[in-house]
Design a protein around this nucleic acid. Structure first.
Lengths: 204, 204
DNA sequence: TTCTCCATGTAAGTAGTTACATGATTGG
DNA sequence: CCAATCATGTAACTACTTACATGGAGAA
């Protein structure tokens, strides 16, 4: 895990547990619903695997931050959870903690782009296009969940829409910078600094 | 680790090893220099801990992708590495591989912002400000390494500057969206959807 | 029937971290 | 001499993942 994101000492809860707690607060009841909620909302900047959710719920319950009860659907077993008062307090306390939250992104796409000078001109261009396309798809996905975020804004939760817009702006920024770079490249009158690794100077 | 970033089966190298390889290619010789290079360039979208670098170098050497030799500085021991032909080929091959590279960001700042409706109005605003400030600082850092990226552009490596500009654009997007949201909030004539959790309706 | 969705869980493994240990060199 | 920097490495640990196992419910 990224170091600065949990700093777990003793029996403090890590970020994933608070994510689960926050989702329970927003109305996700079962582990499965939590998974779905994450996929429909924060998956742009946070993912969680199913195998993490159930242990997190168990830890939250032991800490008294959620209360679970068995609520089978028909004969299908099912545990539902609700946030407790202590849970509300703990969540707010976590949100307020202003320990440094360094911006830590881990993206192979950008890493590859960084090293792309090792490639031939057209290969580098293909990589650039792939990164661009990825962001275009990202925007499409985010747009598709926009209505849900707008509904939740109407119900007093304005911040999901905020983070959604951030995601969109984010990808737009990537697309824009890619576009500028592409342009600079395909421009017929290239200048000195724009020569790529290993290309014959005379190539049009 | 984020799943889709390595998919290691058998004895394939993971992304961190290729990052090390790429840095060696760009002229970082010792483990220490690699660490510094990462901090001065891709740390915006990739970090690597020192404890990872030396084992990675060892694996790369075993695979014949780098060649190491002992080059002490005075009495201080030191191993330097250079990329081999096979290493060049392997790096390019990795850069070309177009297995899906899903955009995966893990950012607690944005997670907290997403859940900020659980906070009081001013607390939420403070969080927003913190996220904004963080990006302002991010931009300042990136600007400070811009000259180095420009130098490397002159030497035929244009992509480091590209990814740097992406980082800047990225943070600018965050700042902009934060600003818009703040504005919407501080606006005297708030509308229905903008009411925050648990606030008395009449509060100015 | 078979497929997909709902639902919960375990097992085994990897990646990655922090913390520590060591020691030479350079500059104030 | 002391602090910062250069330099390499190990030990212990956590977070997180994939893969698997199980099974009910509803639809085609």
């Amino acid at each position: 895990m990224l170091a600065s994101q949990s700093q777990m000492t003793g029996n403090e809860l890590g970020a994933p547990a608070y994510v689960v707690l926050g989702m329970v607060r927003l109305g996700a009841r079962s582990g499965y619903e939590i998974k779905r909620a994450v996929e429909l909302s924060i998956r742009f900047f946070w993912t969680i695997s199913q195998a993490q959710i159930y242990p997190s719920l168990a830890r939250l319950e032991r800490a008294g931050l959620v209360r679970g009860r068995s609520q089978p659907l028909g004969r299908r077993r099912r545990r539902t959870f609700a946030i407790t008062k202590r849970g509300e307090i703990a969540l707010r306390e976590w949100l307020r903690r202003d320990r440094p939250m360094p911006f830590e992104l881990r993206d192979i796409g950008l890493v590859k782009l960084f090293f792309a000078d090792a490639l031939d001109r057209d290969e580098a261009l293909a990589l650039l296009t792939a990164v661009k396309r990825r962001s275009e798809m990202g925007i499409a996905t985010l747009r598709s969940i926009e209505p849900a975020a707008q509904r939740s804004e109407q119900q007093g939760n304005a911040h999901p829409l905020l983070t959604l817009q951030m995601g969109i702006a984010f990808h737009q920024a990537i697309i824009e910078v890619c576009g500028q770079f592409e342009h600079k490249f395909l421009e017929p009158g290239r200048r000195a600094g724009q020569r790529l690794h290993k290309r014959r100077r005379g190539t049009p």
